[in-house]
Structure formats: C-alpha cells, structure tokens
Design a protein around this nucleic acid. Sequence first.
DNA 1: GCCAACGTTGGC
DNA 2: GCCAACGTTGGC
Length: 154
Amino acid sequence: MNYWLFKSEPDEYSLDDLANEKQGFGVWDGIRNYQARNILRDQVSVNDKVLFYYSSCKIPGVAGIAQVVKSAYPDPAQFDPSSKYYDSKATPEKPRWFCVDVKFVKKFDQVVTLKSLKMQQPLSEMTLLKQGRLSVQPVTESEWHYIVTLAKAQ
DNA sequence: GCCAACGTTGGC
DNA sequence: GCCAACGTTGGC
C-alpha cells in the first residue's frame, strides 16, 4: 500500500466533483508530464491512498482523501481529437499517456493549506515542498499520518 | 548531444 | 498578472 498526492485545479475537477460521480469513481486523466506519467503507470496500485490537493486556486492545500480503484490504463483522451488532452503521436497500439480510476473517501472539514504544511518541520522534506510542478507525487507513510492528524486537529 | 528559446505550472 | 522553476522543442 502506497501513499500519493494528486494535484487538481478545483475549478477543473474538485473533490466534490469526485464525490458526486454517478458511476462511483472518477478517471484521473490528462496527466501530460513524463515524470508524473511514469509514477502513475509504474507505481500507483489499486487500494493506494491519495491526498487530493488543490492547486492554482485561492487557498492551495490538501482537501481530502481519495483511493485508487483501478491501476494505470491508456488515457482515452489522448486518442480523442476533440479533447484538449489529444496527442497526435499516441496510438492505441503505442499509448503515450495513462490514467487511473479513483474513488472519493473523505473530505476534510477544512483544507489543510499549503501555508500550514510549510510550517511543519516534519514535512520539510515533502516532495510537494521541494519540487513544484509535479502533479502526481509520492507521500511517505509518516507524512501521510502527519497530514491526516493535522486535518483532524483543525 | 548541446543549449537557446519557448511553454507550462503554480504560488504569490 | 508576475515570475521562478523546470520541462520541451528544435536548430545546429
């Protein structure tokens, strides 16, 4: 069982959107960065837990928890010319991009803000704080528990 | 294979 | 809207 942090712009796709999926899960598609793609394809597995992070918004931070229900498969959007995630160099025989399915688990009472994460010494080595611009990233078990505890305390 | 130019992410 | 960090593209 692994822990991850997935970033999403809440205006594009929020934790509420995931919670309201009629089919009971959401497709985590549109990943177009090789480093994130490799993690998604090679390491993310069913039942792994995910911190749902809001980026590029008024209050960036962790909104809650999701869980992986299906491991990587070719992202259908790369084959769809009408999608903004279309990639003309990708074919079904040679897919370039992958997605996973996730389900809603829990929404924190309040977003655990990036600002508050930065103030926590035990989180100072978090990938989130050391490397920007990575939309799928690992979280250690201790970081996971620390953040969940923070969420409960506020 | 190098590297300059350019594009994107994402916090502020 | 700005800009730092970093990824990608493309000429050579």
